[in-house]
Amino acid sequence: MFEHIGWIVEAKIKEGRREEFAAIVSEIVAETRKDGPVIVALNPGSLLASKMVKEGFGIAGNDLRIGAEIIHKAALSDEFSGASGKYFDNDIGAFGMLHADAQNAGTCQSVITAIEAALAKLKN
């Protein structure tokens, strides 16, 4: 049923840094998973009607179904089948450009190191 998707991850990151983070992770994924499952960095939509938006911004937010629909589409449609390592921005309804840091091996390694350190803390 989910033949086109390996993981779908949404990271809550400072505004303006989301694309950078997604691009770095996407590049790593593209290089390490060429023959594996499709892994796409996905922004389901900004200011969706979550508790965080309501409490943090004091607004009702946009319909949560916006995010659910794009995640469903990413998991089941052929549109995403060749998109491994890319970043999909649902705010613009299209795949976005990779950030230059995504092509910087040192930056990519720093992200991997940080993720591994965070995982190690969770295991202890």
Rank of each mutant, 00 (worst) to 15 (best):
L48S: 11
N62M: 06
V25C: 06
R65P: 04
D91P: 10
V9Y: 01
V111L: 13
S84F: 12
M52A: 15
I92Q: 01
E10R: 15
H4F: 10
S84H: 13
D89V: 12
A117S: 03
V25M: 13
S81E: 11
D63I: 03
I92A: 03
K121I: 06
K121V: 07
Q103V: 00
K51V: 10
K51L: 10
E69N: 14
Y87H: 14
F80L: 12
V25F: 01
G61M: 09
T32F: 01
S50N: 01
K34W: 09
E31K: 15
K86V: 00
G67C: 14
F21G: 04
T32Y: 01
E27P: 01
V40A: 10
A11D: 06
D78H: 04
I39D: 07
S46W: 02
G82K: 10
A117N: 00
E116Y: 00
A120D: 04
A75H: 03
A75N: 02
H72W: 15
D78W: 02
C108K: 06
S46R: 02
G45L: 14
A114R: 09
G106M: 04
A114Y: 06
L119M: 04
D89R: 12
D35Y: 07
N43D: 10
I5T: 11
L42P: 13
V53E: 02
V25Q: 08
P37F: 14
I39N: 08
L42H: 09
I70Y: 04
A41C: 15
H99A: 12
S50Q: 00
K51A: 11
K121W: 05
S110V: 02
E10K: 14
S46N: 09
N104Q: 10
G45D: 10
K12H: 13
F95K: 15
I92R: 00
I92H: 00
G67K: 10
A94S: 14
I24S: 12
K73I: 02
R65S: 15
G56W: 02
I115R: 01
E19C: 11
L119G: 00
A120P: 02
P44D: 05
V111D: 01
F2S: 13
K123I: 01
V29E: 10
E10M: 06
L42F: 12
A118M: 00
A41Q: 09
N104T: 06
T107G: 03
C108Q: 04
V9S: 05
D78S: 10
I39F: 01
G36A: 04
L119Y: 00
A49Q: 05
A41F: 04
K34H: 11
D101T: 01
V38R: 11
A100Y: 08
A74N: 08
F95N: 14
D35F: 05
A114K: 09
A23I: 02
A105I: 04
M52I: 12
T107M: 09
I24D: 09
N62H: 11
D101Y: 15
G16N: 09
K14P: 13
G16S: 10
A41K: 01
